[in-house]
Design a protein around this nucleic acid. Sequence first.
DNA 1: TTTGCTATTTTTAGCCG
DNA 2: ACGGCTAAAAATAGCAA
Lengths: 198, 198
Amino acid sequence: MTRKKVIFYFIENETDRKVSYNKRHEGLLKKVQELNTLCDIEMALIIYSPYITNEMHEVLNGKTISIDMNPYYLNDLSYVIKNLQLVHEAMKKNVGDKGSTSNVPQSTPSKTMTSMMPSPIIDSPFTPMKPQMDPSAEIPSIGASIQMSNYQNYSIGIPQSPSLIELLNWNDDDVVTWLDDLSLNNINDQDSNPTNNI
Amino acid sequence: MTRKKVIFYFIENETDRKVSYNKRHEGLLKKVQELNTLCDIEMALIIYSPYITNEMHEVLNGKTISIDMNPYYLNDLSYVIKNLQLVHEAMKKNVGDKGSTSNVPQSTPSKTMTSMMPSPIIDSPFTPMKPQMDPSAEIPSIGASIQMSNYQNYSIGIPQSPSLIELLNWNDDDVVTWLDDLSLNNINDQDSNPTNNI
DNA sequence: TTTGCTATTTTTAGCCG
DNA sequence: ACGGCTAAAAATAGCAA
């Protein structure tokens, strides 16, 4: 007999726990993708995982983008926030061709969320960046992923960590500029990355 | 025969789609809670739903808090960001009694994410607030939920929408103060809420 | 450790009130 | 629209290599 009714309590054995995590993580992403596809539900799943590179998955119109949030650059929530913005920018850019962040007929869209978004940018190339972390280093981190078409996963590294105060002092234009320039700046700024060991 | 192999494509029929959404939404939350419990994985699931009150679920140590993000107050990502902060503050407060945002033995915790967080506040009472929206109004919105013990869901309304520029100009102390005072201010500020019809 | 394989549990599509 | 119901489909615990 292969399978007990699972008792939902913390799995003490680390090996068992990681195996379970890997399986359930995969299943969870699938579920998220399915719900996104079937019902066009935009989602962001942020996972703070101590096991492997953590991930934030944002799903939208059958598309996924992965963003790795290097814990060394984490400054409280600033990177969660920043990556949410990255994710959303990417979402807008990659779905802009539909003219909206959603292609679902809104049932009673007196005021949809997407309609309150800044104008969707159309078809801007989204240049993903890979973080330069040692994958074998078992460091809890945060990552992000947006579901894109064809299940392509793009990884985005975070080059420099502005402090939360810096971040909060930015205005809209600063943020947009930073996001737009991130892919370029990142390449040049990587040397200042303490974990840039590749 | 009751069930076809499901074809993963957008469900055109709105009724069918919503039924599917409701079922899968429930299942997804369960999966998230299970993974959190079994492997102590902290997660935030943000759902932009056009059907019912949208939700962001952040799960941690078997605890859930729900935060409703009123779309009328949504200003681009400012409320996603703000609610992420709310969620995280609530997380810290509700899990502070463990002395950390995680009670899992870290495998190789040279530098855990939680260790880079601001000092966890211990045992502060988290006062949830209910948004004053008409539940029957079919307005896409964003909500949030953190999994708490006993599956109690607390709902937090967002009283006033600072513009994104305002938000970004806040510093750490401003944010903390705003978060700390939110439950109190919300009560007094509700009248300025355009959807406050109860 | 990770991968592959079932047996079993769990989820959920389609129905019916 | 919601709340069961049930059987098929899907996820996954335990084992094996």
